[in-house]
């Protein structure tokens, strides 16, 4: 299995397709949440997804690491098809990091333990190596001095930066951000966005970000996607997206948030 994964890993170079979603449909009971989603993401691409609440944007990115299960269509992540097989799901999750709206740090573990848990138990790295990597990423998000504290002792912005570092410690190919700044105080939004911008610029990380931060979308995104009613209504470069919206629905949305 591992040799297989490495083979596919080498194949995907910058600019090649790393996520391919075809005709994805999902229902909650009888409620049709995702309708014929088609989306292709290239390695190194930065994508921002926006739309009104209930439009299915979070559900869509949560399907990518199977926090949600879809009923129809296909999904290939880093060359690995998403099928109902524990081995496939686990290898996809190893390639995909996720940052949540409510941080979801483990409250009973210190910051350092939060960061080393995955590397030690999933990647079977020695503790010293995992801790060295963790400290490297804590420095990257500018809070190495908080390593031995517990999540409850940190501010929201600090917790979210720890959550980003926790995902990075697993060396993922893709990072998913599910409204990473929505639960933060206004003064803390910038510190989290700065970390994300740095990640995009320096690492060339493939990123899909559900957010309402239009400033972030304008400066960072390669492509902006607008969703409504479970459909992808429009996708375009930020410039075209904000200046020349093609549909009246997007026009209305933009006029209400800006």
């Amino acid at each position: 299995m591992t040799t297989n994964n490495q083979a596919t890993k080498q194949k995907i170079e910058k600019g090649e397709n790393i996520i391919v979603i075809e005709d994805m449909n999902k229902w909650y009971g009888n409620f049709h949440v995702l309708k014929d989603i088609n989306l292709t993401v290239k390695k190194g691409e930065r994508i921002v997804v926006c739309g009104p609440s209930g439009s299915g944007k979070s559900t869509m990115i949560r399907c990518i690491n199977r926090l949600e299960v879809f009923q129809q269509g296909s999904l290939i992540v880093n060359g690995i098809p998403m099928i109902d097989d524990v081995k496939n799901i686990e290898s996809i999750r190893r390639e995909v990091g996720m940052v949540f709206q409510h941080f979801n740090l483990f409250p009973h573990l210190t910051i350092l333990e939060n960061l080393t848990l995955g590397p030690i138990w999933v990647q079977k790295k020695p503790k010293e190596e995992a801790e060295a990597t963790a400290m490297k990423y804590l420095e990257r998000v500018k809070i190495p001095d908080q390593a031995l504290k517990f999540p409850g002792q940190l501010s929201g912005g600090q917790q979210q930066r720890v959550a980003i570092a926790r995902s990075l410690c697993m060396a993922p190919e893709i990072m998913l951000f599910d409204e990473p700044t929505s639960a933060l105080d206004p003064e803390m939004i910038k510190e989290v966005l700065d970390v994300m911008i740095e990640l995009a610029d320096e690492e060339g990380m493939t990123m899909i970000c559900v957010t309402h931060e239009m400033g972030f979308a304008k400066t960072v995104a390669d492509r902006v996607i607008f969703m409504d009613g479970g459909e992808i209504v429009e996708e375009n470069t930020p410039h075209e997206f904000f200046d020349k919206p093609e549909t009246d629905r997007l026009q209305l949305f933009l006029s209400q948030i800006i």
Binding site: N65, R66, L67, E90, R93, R94, V96, G97, M98, F100, H102, F103, N104, L105, F106, L117, G118, W121, V122, R166, S167, M170
Partner: peptide, 18 residues
């Protein structure tokens, strides 16, 4: 226990027992 704890554990790639 908040649902987010399970999701965070899943997204890191921990197995069911871990």
């Amino acid at each position: 226990i908040p649902q987010g704890q399970y999701e965070a554990a899943d997204s890191i790639g921990l197995s069911y027992w871990q």
